[in-house]
Design a protein around this nucleic acid. Structure first.
Lengths: 342, 342
DNA sequence: CTGTTAGCGCCTTCAT
DNA sequence: ATGAAGGCGCTAACAG
């Protein structure tokens, strides 16, 4: 006796038809709004639906239509504000167009990503938005005929739509800013080795150095991973090995967090002793003293555009060719970047 | 020609049966793992499945079983780290038990919440985890026979499981801490008026005052809403009207953010001029200088336990009575709370 | 151990 | 304008 009225099953369209004294087809036409129905009958059926609490079964509908209104969204880490923003934007856009979101976390692991792809395929989602880690999931989904949009990273170029960030330009701007302030030994904290974002941000960093006629020094670019703790450790190593660094460019909010923690732990002061700039602006950076300069990413845009591209493809509004959109960053100068000390 | 192999539709179990040279039932038995099948046949069917890329249709399965493996999760704001943590924990737990998550944002609006309830009901989700705003959604879902677990706030007491935070004890601890430091005029920033969390945290604040034999002063408790901007405005008003406040207790991470911004804007220094403590610890608070003292909420626990309770109920493991769990907070003392000035 | 049959709830021709 | 019938893909009796 799960339901309020004591019955243990939900009313179906047959119940509705019986209650309203019409055939199931007529009831269906009223509920779905397709086909001709006398308005008096419409009223009667709607009243009956309210009375018995009829809610059409989306599962049966999906089976019949061979299509769902669900979209799979796969990201690396919901607890990272970057992905949370993207996911929130996707959800909002989907919702406004009558779709909903199945959200899965890959934790940056390829096998979790594949498991999610299988889930999405099995669920017959209308499409998928994902921040890919391995490329296999995207390939699998595309092969299965699922519309896919890659976000933030592109691992299947030419095969599906993608929304990316102007990583190189953003990193170029940040690095140039430091160079213009007179910094010459700039530590680069690069997470996610092998990721497109890391590669492109590194390219931007190098391009800026080159522009200033400076050589690239590998010892200024330690390898790190995602966690703040790792970032802190690596920052410590950098500071030990290269005590001459006067500025650090942390290429993600997580790396910035770790770097700040380590800098503070050593009693060094940001801005005064060491300039710091982050790629990916998050709200707390504004609160630090000094506030942290950052390359703001268009997180909301990333999510909205991804959802748009997907929905356009589902509509058939999109052309045959995959579309790739690059969204611009914004350099936000705050107090953490200051002229290089004498 | 959506699919890789050129066909425009996914292989069904009939295709699989044909390919393997068995009946649909046998194919089904192999794929679902129910019933006896000769092992030689099993191998043959599995090989055929791989060959044609058969993935069972979860929609059809759900229709047949009259049950899905989807769980609806409804929160107020994915961009708020508190909810992001809860959602991430729910998702992880669900995933480990073969369920997945349909995530919807209510933005704290009752009508969006009801829309989500309708979506969940229509989707025939196995259950719902929600941080409710109006109580109507919970009631509607329960009436429809859906298993519900309320998280963070309880708006349908006695009707469904709930996982809550020891708000009163947490607020009591924070307030007592300030009182012990000698503060006597403690501003209380209370968001979400009418919300259970606000009420309980207020109760904890009052209980602590009472414990110290101090009267409750309404002018120390301005009304605010959720946004950091609102919180900043209200903090400003408080500081104007009551220049004698020596400490502020911000009862959410968002309120703390706004308060800090306003305090900084006025050039007042946290700890030295004004003590500050927050309810809901988030990573950046550790990074501030001085780092912010906070009442840490068990966000991950909230999500995990909610998922557990729900899954237990779906298993039939749970008893008839609704279970309510209260999770403890942790008082984390950092630099932002100091003895009251001279 | 395997095949036949029926039906989950819905929608959509087709016929009237 | 309405009803009857069939089938979306799957599985669970029920035979054999």
């Amino acid at each position: 006796m799960a339901r309020k009225d004591g019955s243990d099953r939900r009313p179906t369209i047959s119940d509705l038809a019986r209650e309203a004294g019409v055939s199931r087809s007529t009831a269906s036409r009223v509920i779905s709004g397709n086909g001709y129905v006398a308005s008096s009958v419409k009223v009667r059926v709607r009243a009956a639906a309210d009375r018995i609490g009829y809610v059409p079964d989306a599962v049966a509908r999906s089976l019949r239509h061979r299509a769902t209104r669900a979209v799979g969204v796969l990201i690396s880490d919901l607890r990272n504000p970057f992905y949370a923003d993207v996911a929130a934007a996707v959800e909002q856009r989907l919702r406004s167009r009558g779709y909903h979101m199945i959200l899965a976390n890959s934790d940056g692991m390829a096998d979790e990503e594949e498991a999610a792809a299988t889930l999405f395929e099995a669920s017959r989602v209308a499409g998928v938005v994902l921040a890919p880690v391995s490329g296999l999931a995207t390939r699998r989904l595309i092969d299965a005929g699922v519309a896919v949009v890659e976000v933030d990273r592109q691992l299947a170029p030419g095969e599906c739509d993608a929304v990316l960030v102007e990583n190189e330009a953003g990193a170029f701007a940040a690095t140039s800013h430091l160079l213009e302030l007179g910094h010459r030994r700039i530590g680069l904290l690069l997470g996610e080795l092998g990721w497109m974002t890391a590669t492109e941000r590194l390219a931007g960093y190098r391009a800026a150095l080159e522009r200033f006629g400076l050589p690239f020094d590998e010892s200024l670019v330690p390898r790190s991973s995602f966690s703040p703790a790792e970032a802190a450790r690596v920052t410590g190593e950098l500071l030990d090995k290269r005590p001459d660094v006067s500025a650090i460019f942390a290429t993600s909010n997580v790396l910035a967090e770790g770097a700040i923690a380590e800098i503070q732990r050593r009693g060094r002061r940001i801005m005064t002793d060491l300039s710091l700039i982050a790629f990916d602006d998050v709200p707390w950076m504004r609160l630090m003293q000094p506030p942290i300069s950052a390359v703001a990413q268009p997180t909301i845009g990333l999510g909205s555009v991804a959802a748009e591209l997907l929905l356009d493809r589902l509509d058939g509004t999109a052309g045959a060719e995959p579309v790739v959109r690059r969204l611009e960053t914004t350099l936000i100068l705050r107090g953490s970047t200051a002229p290089a000390g004498r």
